[in-house]
């Protein structure tokens, strides 16, 4: 079952302008790999050389930051809401 993932504006040039894309994976890590297979280059924007999610990118599963879940090992299912959101400057 595909899982919808919300793509932020700065990454939409990699998804042909799509703000939501369908992908698969049992964990966030697997989902990112599949996302990169479909949209080459997108993973390098989200993760650093060591594979860790970049400091100024947040990935939310049902509104919860994966840093406070199991990071890339966080298990996901098709009913989950996944969003990729760059940190917002301000204040």
């Amino acid at each position: 079952m595909p899982i919808p993932v919300t793509i932020p504006t700065p990454l939409r040039n990699l998804t042909g302008g799509a703000d939501t894309v369908q992908t698969e994976g049992a964990t966030i890590g697997a989902l990112l790999d599949n996302l990169d297979a479909a949209y080459p280059g997108i993973k390098a924007r989200i993760c650093d050389e060591s594979g860790a999610v970049r400091r100024f990118v947040n990935i939310y599963v049902n509104g919860e930051d994966i840093r406070f879940l199991e990071e890339k090992e966080t298990a996901i299912k098709e009913t989950d809401e996944i969003s990729i959101v760059p940190a917002i400057a301000g204040g």
Binding site: P10, R45, F56
Partner: peptide
């Protein structure tokens, strides 16, 4: 502009 286009850093 305020964000790095590569890694979203400030």
């Amino acid at each position: 502009t305020h964000i790095c286009e590569d890694d979203f850093g400030p």
